[in-house]
Design a binder for these strands. Structure first.
Lengths: 204, 204, 204, 204
DNA sequence: GATGAATGAGTGTTCATTCAT
DNA sequence: TATGAATGAACACTCATTCAT
């Protein structure tokens, strides 16, 4: 097997299983049975079960941070009308984050593991609430400054905008198989709320 | 020990631990250590671990169904202005459901267990999305019929109204200890969104 | 419940279950579930599980001893020709011992429990081999003395006569349900061997 | 430890204990205490307790089937006088089956487990009654065809021949320790019956 | 007579992990 | 790189039995 291949396979399978059943409900046996390798072999690649999780977490945080950075850059450029009211970045947020196979799987995992671990709770809060909301606030304050959006409380507006998206994620993307059908349903329902949000404010 | 006391204690402690760490991460030993009884004693009261969960689920569903019924009745009476735009029932929904110690704990548990079990996923969807949203839609359609609320899409409106509440629940009430501080924060943030929601529509 | 009734019920059910599954595979729970009484109640009637067995054993030994005594008496009277060549006693041995519900059940139990317990092994040997064979030897030596049976080795003859009966018991009466069909099959096959035994020796 | 050794040791010890006390009366702890290994190690070699039994059963059936095949072949060759009246095969049946340490132990086990399990009942019937009797019938019908044995009912004759052997097995070889003394006693008593059987029919 | 409540010892089994090869 | 062999600790659960009422 090509070098690094086995390690990647372990990570892939682990994330898949973790996201399905939760970290502690997945055994080393389960993972190795699917790779497939012997259980002792796994310890050649990882110190222990926890390390698998940590590597996944690190990759997730890198990927998520990169996306957020890109989104920030995108809106730093003077906002153009039309789809520009956050439309482009929202789509990236949908497709490359909430519905991206890797990010979606890790977010599900994070969501399930919040219960036991305080630091994971904070991580989840960061990537599911803090960062997206902060980003959205920036967008709305900018739109208001530019007079595109009526003066209002940007923070409340950000929640009003993001909460339906988050609820859609929770309802359609956070458990069960991630089918095209579910993704489509999420896109439709979240899109409907967003459209309404802008229409009501006379922006579309 | 007073009659029936031990059984209730087992249920209490079990729910507490389940809600903290998730069903499968809690061992019979953990429960018995806290009651406190010997492990074999637990099996005098329950056939197995699952039965503890099922009894809790049944009680939750009864309690939740009773609340929903009460809420429906309340809005069946002609809606009066002011706090009447769903304000009374929303408060009941907050205090006696989302923040009620028993219901809150079971909702957390349900939220964590969605991963593994299809039927629990449906149960969670019922009590966290389907029923509250259906209720809210009824409220808004009624308000529109009465001309109190401007004609609009009641379904979208229900999501606009409920999503921030749900997000508040997820963020402040669904993991970690359920402190007064967190409850207050939830009340404040959700209240802020609700107030805005009605203000924007000229109802407050 | 009439006095002594519960105790008898416990003994009945216990023997039934013991004979089906073996002593140690039957739990106090199993027995009490069928009586039906609470488990603690059983200890009002018996000191422990073993005592149930011992009472059954005692009753069995009394009943078996009484039958053997009766059989001995029957052949002490001058043997008459025809069915008299042990025919009458053999039938009693079949119907009131090997196929009698109580004796059959206890013999099955004894048979299963031989493995672990030396004294039970002796008991089984007594009632399944030693006594029946000793009895049969007496019958044959008497028949030979009277010139009814040709001079021969009575001990060998006893085995020739009894072994097919024993094998029939083992094959048809020692496990599974004791149906009329099985009893009939046993009677037929054992009878065939007995008939042949006497025919070959010119006695029928 | 040499390769494959531990697994074999587990099988050996298990069979020994099973044959002594019965399957369910032997605990994993008992087996591991004697091998000796830790309990978790046993599960490296076998999926569960039942699998140990099944492997033993498979080996027994293979061995028994091989012996039966060999016996059939032996009598297919034209029967020669003297020891040939089944003498050779009967000895093989004694030494390599009824008294062979492995087969004897498994037959004891099978005998004890008849109570609970219908399929084991059938297995026992096969190997203790059906096959040996069928074989013996063939022998006698052949001997009669060749005029060596007087015309008679071969089926009855087979029982007459086999029943004392079976009874000897039950009495001397099916419980307690399998000592040389007991084996000798079995050989003597079964031999006596066989000798008589042929003498009475003028064949020895 | 009968039971509710409790228990210590034991059941088969799974787990993440180690280590020599 | 990979594995065969092993393990200690934990798991959910069952058992016969006790004892106050």
């Amino acid at each position: 097997m090509a070098i690094g291949r086995t390690r990647e396979k372990i990570l892939d399978i682990s994330l898949e299983l973790f996201a399905q059943r939760g970290y502690s409900a997945v055994s080393i046996r389960d993972i190795c049975g699917r790779v497939p390798i012997k259980e002792s072999t796994l310890y050649y690649y990882f110190q222990n079960k926890r390390e698998i999780f940590l590597v996944l977490q690190q990759r997730f945080e890198e990927k998520a941070a990169a996306l957020m950075r890109r989104m920030e850059e995108e809106i730093a450029a003077p906002l153009q009308g039309g789809a520009g009211f956050g439309g482009g970045v929202t789509q990236a947020f949908f497709e490359e984050y909430l519905m991206d196979p890797f990010c979606n799987a890790f977010l599900r995992l994070l969501r399930m593991e919040q219960g036991g671990d305080e630091t994971l709770r904070e991580t989840y809060d960061q990537w599911m609430f803090e960062r997206p909301l902060t980003f959205q606030k920036k967008v709305f304050w900018a739109l208001m400054e530019q007079g595109i959006l009526q003066q209002a409380d940007g923070d409340v507006l950000a929640v009003q905008y993001y909460a339906p998206i988050f609820m859609g994620f929770e309802r359609y993307l956070s458990s069960g198989e991630l089918t095209e059908e579910k993704k489509e349903r999420f896109r439709r329902e979240a899109g409907r709320q967003i459209t309404w949000f802008f229409q009501e404010r006379g922006l579309i």
